[in-house]
Structures are given as structure tokens and as C-alpha cells.
Design a protein around this nucleic acid. Structure first.
Lengths: 173, 173
DNA sequence: GGCGTTCTATCTATCGATTGGTAGTTATAG
DNA sequence: CTATAACTACCAATCGATAGATAGAACGCC
């Protein structure tokens, strides 16, 4: 049930942000009462912290070992999960949304967001090392996050796809 | 007073998003009561609509005539206003934040956000036309929006600056 | 100039709904 | 018998929004 609550929270947060869902919303989504949600996650801050933490863990598992991928394949691998979120689920990156709202995000959530960007930055930089001339990781991640933002709001998946393919072309190896 | 209210709303929205401020917050900021804020903006939806509209107008004025700038100068001009927002005011792009929250943004606000991205896309594409090989406008805007997100959350202005300078290097002319 | 009227911008006071959160109870499984 | 996981029934705070009063400025008219 804990996982089901997090699933509902993630789906809502990735569309409308941290302040865009309530305990009652999640309760309805999973078919219990809001007090029962508090049983699993005493405060909203703890819920969001767990949510971001699970998101980081899943991303780490998905990314895998960066030394086992060629630079271009690595960028494609990272892009794929963003494209899927955008096109199949009409969702933003959870940490991208949290970053946008960072000004009034509860204290314990922000560090998890930082960990997320550190994780994929280091992963990408490792994977890109063999490339003769490649953009820095932060450049690529920024482009993907921004392209997701724009694709969603313009209702045009081609924006993200175009940014991804343009990025791939810039990588040798 | 209307402008002062919008100023307060913009400052708060660009840090914490649409659901990150209340009429009472704005009232306190400008030194009146929340009922008086409703006098100027009957609903929060209308307030946010006016806010986004003013943001678009100001950006259009700031950008100016794209045919009067060389490609590289145009990109630098666009980047400058984002860098200033990030470093001097620790703020995101208003429409970038709204885009992230688009899932539960009131109806009339979203079209203004779309107009914003259309505006700068067309402006940039016009300015880039003389360039032999240049990224598409959406690529550049996405990179800047994403870099602002990351710079803010990582508390590192160098991320945005690095993305900007890398982008400038990719433009001939 | 003086007088009534209307407009503007604020106030106090309050509304119903929703928010995050708590206390105490109940049902079930090991 | 205890631990788990749900429930009912609240609470105080805050939310967006409304009603009605008030003070002062601006305006038209004689």
C-alpha cells in the first residue's frame, strides 16, 4: 500500500507539483481514507522525501553502470526514460518539478533533489569520458529538463525528441 | 498598487510557483488587506493571467527587434535576462515555473505560457536565420530553462553560465 | 464657490471549503 | 496478545472569495 500511495503521489506531483495534491487526493486514488495515508507517511514532508528518494533509487537502477555504455548510447538511454514519461504518461521529471518549486518546498525534500542531479551528472560524465568532444553532463541534462517543460506545456512531443536527436548528433563515439 | 501586487506575486511565483503564494501573502507584501487584493484581481486565476501577460509583454519589449542583432548577440541578449534573474534575484523564469506546474494551473493561465514560448522561439529563430549552422530556437530555450532550474536547486550559478557559454560557441555569426 | 453624486480604494468581518494532522476505535492476521 | 492497517470523527489553520461599511478624491451642475 505504501508503494501505491507513492505511485499516486508521484503521478500527481509530476503533473502539478508538490502543492498540487493533498492527502485526500491520494487517499481517493488508492481507495482508503486520508487518515490512513498519514499512517504510512505521518507528514507531507516525509511523504515527499520518500517520494524523491524512491525516484532517485529507481533512476540509479535504470541508469546502470555508465562504463558499460558508449557515450552516444548512454545519452540515448537517459533520454529514453524522459521521452517515455513525456509521451506515455504526460509527466515531467519529478525532480525537475520540485526544482521549479524549490522556493517553498519543505526542508528535507530539497537535498534529495540535489542528489538526483548529482547522480545523473556524475553518471553522464563518466559515460561521456571516452568521447573526444562532447557537451558537459549539466548541459545535456539542462536541455532535457527544459525540453520536457516545453513539450508538456506546448503539447508537442516533437520538441523533446528534437532536442534529444540534436544532442546525440553532437557526440563523437 | 496593481503593479505592486503583481510585483509581489511575480517574485513569489518565480520562487515557489502558483500554489506557493496566497492572497494574504501578497497583501502583507504590499501593506494592505487580502480583501483589497481581491478588489484589484477578483480571482487568483485572473491575477495569474495578468501576471503571465505582463511577463510576456515585458519580455517582448526587452527582446526588441530580432533583425537588428547578429545571431550570437541575440542569444547573449536572451541569456542575459535569465542570468540576471538567477543571480541577482534567485528567481526562475515565471513561465518555466508555470510550465512545470501546468497540470493544475487554472485554465486561462496556460495559454499565456504558450504565448511566451512561442514569442521567444520565433524571436530567436528570426535572429538565428543568418547563421550558417545554429541550433534551433527550442533547443536553446530548453537548455536555458533547464539550466535555470538546475542552477537554482544546486545553488550554483556556474551551471547556467556554463550552458550559456557552451551555447554561444555553437553559433557561427 | 458650494453641493450632491459617483468612483476608487481600502477596511472589517465573515463565509464555506480544504488543508495537514491527531485521537481513539475496530477488524484482521500471525 | 500483539502488530498492522484500516476506520470514524474531529481539530485548528489557511485558503479563495464575498458582503457591507467607510473615507477621500473627482466630477457635474447650478
Amino acid at each position: 500500500m505504501k508503494e501505491a500511495i507513492l505511485d499516486a503521489a508521484e503521478s500527481r506531483a509530476r503533473r502539478g507539483g508538490y502543492n498540487g495534491f493533498s492527502f485526500r487526493d491520494l487517499a481517493k486514488d488508492v481507495g482508503i481514507k486520508s487518515a490512513s495515508v498519514h499512517y504510512h507517511f505521518p507528514t507531507k514532508e516525509q511523504l515527499a522525501e520518500a517520494l524523491a528518494h524512491r525516484y532517485v533509487d529507481r533512476m540509479a537502477v535504470y541508469l546502470g553502470d555508465p562504463t558499460k555504455l558508449q557515450p552516444r548510447a548512454a545519452v540515448k538511454h537517459l533520454a529514453d526514460i524522459f521521452i517515455k514519461a513525456n509521451e506515455a504518461d504526460d509527466q515531467m521529471c519529478l525532480c525537475g518539478v520540485f526544482a521549479a518549486e524549490s522556493g517553498n518546498l519543505p526542508q528535507r525534500v530539497l537535498p534529495e533533489v540535489v542528489v538526483f542531479f548529482d547522480l545523473i551528472s556524475k553518471w553522464l560524465n563518466t559515460a561521456l569520458r571516452p568521447a573526444e568532444s562532447a557537451p558537459k553532463a549539466a548541459e545535456i541534462i539542462a536541455a532535457f529538463e527544459g525540453a520536457m517543460l516545453m513539450s508538456r506545456v506546448m503539447r508537442d512531443p516533437a520538441i523533446l525528441r528534437s532536442v534529444v536527436s540534436a544532442t546525440l548528433k553532437r557526440i563523437n563515439g
